[in-house]
């Protein structure tokens, strides 16, 4: 039992290491990873200034920008990862490793959280130091809970999606691409989600990032309560449920999709 746990921990560490080390292996990529994504956030801040919005809306965009980095990471480096691995011919090696696929995905998630947090921090730094956006830590416990629960739920969702992407072909890439702008719109990355109306905002609440953004804005922006769709404690509660349910579903989804992929001979299929 102890040996088995140790093996799984090694698998987590091994997969996380690749992610962590990659950020300093490709130094030419560093500005594109860390500095330039901030600029898209800055564009939305200036847009709000252009149309005469109060400064709090800049903070709203900043929180959206921070969560965008995690959402993009979940889409491109978690959900589609098994598809990339199949394209590169690595997937069969994953299935030969004497460790659970969940441990490999968990390692991927841990490594991703580390590298993405560097990007997220740079966005936060620019927003707070350069733009001097107003921020108020009204409820630190709620803010911390919202952040960590949303990451657990998001990466759990990424693990679940990766099992689906395992059997898909090139549509996986396009689906990831499709999950960008429409989700930015639906989840209210750059405006309060309640502006979409009750029906759309409720549907959007199935995505963890919607709840995280809604809750964090209420506890971090001065006067943010007015922007809220659901009470903060409900956001926390739903995120806690999601943080448990998504990895659980991912476990079963991965086993099922693995069987299906083996049956249909898709594990070694490339370029389709």
């Amino acid at each position: 039992m102890f040996k088995k746990i140790l093996r799984e921990l090694r698998a987590i560490r091994g997969r996380a290491y690749v992610r962590m080390v990659s950020i300093r292996r490709d130094l030419l990529l560093l500005p594109f990873q860390v500095i330039l994504p901030v600029l898209a956030v800055a564009a939305y801040i200036y847009l709000y200034r252009f149309i005469g919005a109060p400064p709090e809306y800049g903070t709203l965009v900043l929180i959206g920008g921070v969560m965008t980095t995690y959402w993009l990471n979940v889409l491109w480096s978690m959900a589609s990862q098994l598809y990339w691995e199949r394209m590169m011919g690595n997937l069969q090696i994953y299935f030969l490793v004497p460790a659970s696929k969940m441990s490999i995905l968990l390692g991927m998630a841990v490594g991703s959280m580390y590298t993405t947090s560097i990007r997220a921090l740079s966005t936060l730094f620019v927003g707070l130091v350069i733009f001097r956006l107003p921020i108020e830590l009204k409820n630190p416990v709620a803010a911390i809970l919202l952040f960590f629960l949303s990451l657990s739920a998001l990466y759990g969702m990424g693990m679940l999606l990766s099992s689906v992407f395992l059997v898909w072909g090139r549509e996986a890439w396009h689906l990831s691409s499709l999950f960008q702008e429409p989700i930015y719109l639906l989840s209210g990355f750059y405006f309060p989600v309640k502006s979409l109306g009750i029906t759309l905002a409720t549907v959007a609440s199935l995505i963890p990032v919607t709840l995280a953004l809604d809750g964090m804005r209420q506890v971090l922006i001065p006067g943010g309560e007015k922007m809220g769709f659901l009470p903060v404690w409900i956001n926390i509660l739903i995120l806690a449920v999601m943080a448990l349910v998504f990895p659980y579903l991912a476990y079963y989804g991965l086993n099922y999709m693995e069987r299906l992929a083996k049956k249909e001979g898709r594990i070694t299929t490339r370029w389709q």
């Binding site: 994504p37 600029l39 993009l72």
Partner: peptide, 14 residues
């Protein structure tokens, strides 16, 4: 994807 996102962000702003 980082190059596309980063460069697009730069152009979007400037």
């Amino acid at each position: 994807e980082f190059i596309v996102e980063g460069a697009s962000g730069f152009l979007y702003l400037f």
